[in-house]
Simulated scan of single mutants.
Amino acid sequence: MQQFFTDYMTQQRALSPPTVASYRDTFVLMLRFAHEHHGKAPTDFQLTDLTAKFLLGFLDHLEQKRHNSVRSRNVRLAAVRSFLKFAAGRDPAHLSVIEQALAVPMKRFDRKMVGFVPKEQMLAVIDVPADTWVGQRDRLMLTLMFNTGARVSEIVGVRVVDVVLGPTSSVRLHGKGRKQRTLPLWKTTAKAIRDWLELNPNLQANSPLLPRRDAMPMTRANVAQRLKLAVDAATLRHPDLAKISVSPHVIRHSTKSLLPPFLAIY
């Protein structure tokens, strides 16, 4: 397992730190399950213990006891599968056990329909009165989210250097798996960024564009909290917003709803 994390994942495949952390969390949970439910200490756990029966028990535990979604269950299974494929090439003596564990299937699930916020109501959320520094930051955050349809991780990861302001303004987003993409900015968004940078001349090129008061990047929790406050304030003028569950993911789909059918946001 040590070779899997140190040699294979970080050196040979050069996977991103978030991916490595996700795989690490999977094995922490699995070893904890083995210790608590099978009396196997992490130091005593062997590859032969990772049977199909054990793996199914672990996955059921995630769903039933930890209340993980099926999607999360499948993410954990994918991590274990990756390790098993790695182990198969280095420990052929246990191919039978590995093959049986690899046969554990991904669990199918119904995908929920994701709604969207109509443009007028989304603009009302963005235009919530913002006289304070935090309020102005939140307005820019929401504007960027609606303009780009970016994931939360991409929005909080934007640095000042990622923004290009000019005749054709754009922003570079850092997505999952080290993927980068550049998206055009609306004129209103570009102006909002210019105003924000003028208000914060101390921001350096590598500074987060949307920092907290301690100059650190915002977190997912920060974004969710600030979005809820903006939606609550906008609901006073647009009561229909109370019927919509507005989340960062819903805003992402709201941006998609404005695009022509032949375009898509990945």
Rank of each mutant, 00 (worst) to 15 (best):
R194E: 15
R194V: 15
R194W: 10
R194G: 11
D195T: 13
W196R: 01
W196V: 00
L197F: 05
E198A: 14
E198H: 15
E198V: 15
L199W: 07
L199V: 05
N200V: 04
P201N: 03
P201A: 02
P201F: 04
N202D: 15
L203A: 01
L203G: 00
L203C: 01
L203I: 03
L203E: 00
Q204H: 09
Q204I: 11
A205E: 11
A205F: 09
A205Y: 09
A205K: 13
N206G: 10
S207K: 15
L209M: 12
L210S: 10
P211L: 08
P211F: 09
P211E: 01
P211T: 08
R212K: 08
R213C: 03
R213K: 07
D214L: 07
D214A: 08
D214T: 09
A215K: 14
M216V: 09
P217N: 01
P217F: 00
T219I: 06
R220H: 12
A221C: 07
A221L: 08
N222Y: 10
N222I: 06
V223N: 06
V223W: 06
V223D: 01
A224D: 03
Q225S: 08
Q225A: 07
Q225T: 05
R226G: 01
R226W: 00
R226P: 00
L227D: 00
L227R: 04
K228I: 02
K228C: 01
K228Q: 10
K228S: 00
K228T: 03
L229K: 12
L229D: 07
L229E: 13
A230Y: 02
A230H: 05
D232S: 12
D232Q: 14
D232I: 12
D232N: 13
D232K: 11
D232G: 10
A234M: 05
A234S: 06
A234Y: 03
A234L: 06
T235E: 08
T235Y: 04
L236R: 13
L236H: 14
L236Q: 15
L236K: 15
R237P: 10
R237H: 12
R237V: 11
H238T: 13
H238K: 11
P239H: 07
P239L: 08
D240L: 11
D240K: 06
D240G: 11
